[in-house]
Design a protein around this nucleic acid. Sequence first.
DNA 1: CGTCATTAGTTGCATTGTCAACAATCTTCG
DNA 2: CGAAGATTGTTGACAATGCAACTAATGACG
Lengths: 153, 153
Amino acid sequence: MFSSPVIDDRLITTFGRLAEAYNRLERRLGPAMQAEAGLPHVWFEVLLRLARSEGEQLSMSALAEQITLTTGGVTRLIDRMEAAGYVERRPCPTDRRVSYACLTDTGRGVLNRAATVHARNLREVFADFGESDLDTLDKLLDRLREAAPHLAP
Amino acid sequence: MFSSPVIDDRLITTFGRLAEAYNRLERRLGPAMQAEAGLPHVWFEVLLRLARSEGEQLSMSALAEQITLTTGGVTRLIDRMEAAGYVERRPCPTDRRVSYACLTDTGRGVLNRAATVHARNLREVFADFGESDLDTLDKLLDRLREAAPHLAP
DNA sequence: CGTCATTAGTTGCATTGTCAACAATCTTCG
DNA sequence: CGAAGATTGTTGACAATGCAACTAATGACG
């Protein structure tokens, strides 16, 4: 018994590796963040993106693109985070369609605590990765990210 | 205005890159597989794992570990795939607790078509990756996968 | 200006997955 | 043997997300 050649395609296997690596890390670090910092990993990702943005705010669609969710998903995510007091919505002064999600003081505090925890956990996972390994990985991932631009409907 | 140092942690950024790269690829290739081959990407992943396994079958928990889902999730996933006729459940002759998900002829056919489509799409995404790039990426991802073993409750 | 196409965000509905409790079965060891 | 503990898979209740339809606002262009 032997397998059809196409299912052993090199790229299928590589992509499978990528999925497995990411999912395992997520499954390890996600619950850890929830347990040790009290917030889901997606929330952290949102807070982080906001903190790194001009004025600590991003429009809903910009956020959607950055964290790879639909705008519908982001609406509800921000609903929850706003209810928790970590972000707040602000209208855009020049375009009344857009609304910004903006980091609150509470959100900034939570983010810093969570980032500390997260960084510590990551150091454990990446324990045997040297600087050059990380550089190489970063570059490859960047090329991959650029190879899959978001869609143009 | 400057950011708290911890949110610019090297590893946090690298992990963010991994997430972004994976999610973008998934968002590009997932819908493509659904549109061109008529099945969700997770289904493909299941069929692929089964096809690569001894006897084209895997226990529910083995499957859960391979595709990074809970056993509860796998139960329902296999429910749907069995209803579609792509897999079938078989009792294990030596342990009556375990049940195997087993590839059907239909499933094998679907898998081969889907794999062809998938491989073609992947070739597009990985267009400017050479053999040595892929080797490097594979090795790094493997180390990462091993660095995050599944949990021991 | 006025109309038409485009864009941003929200919402109802359906789907998918998790979590925790559970039943059935197996294993260990007194 | 037989009781206690582990392990496998399923299920009910629930949370999160996608999709598609919708509203509101903007922009393009005759």
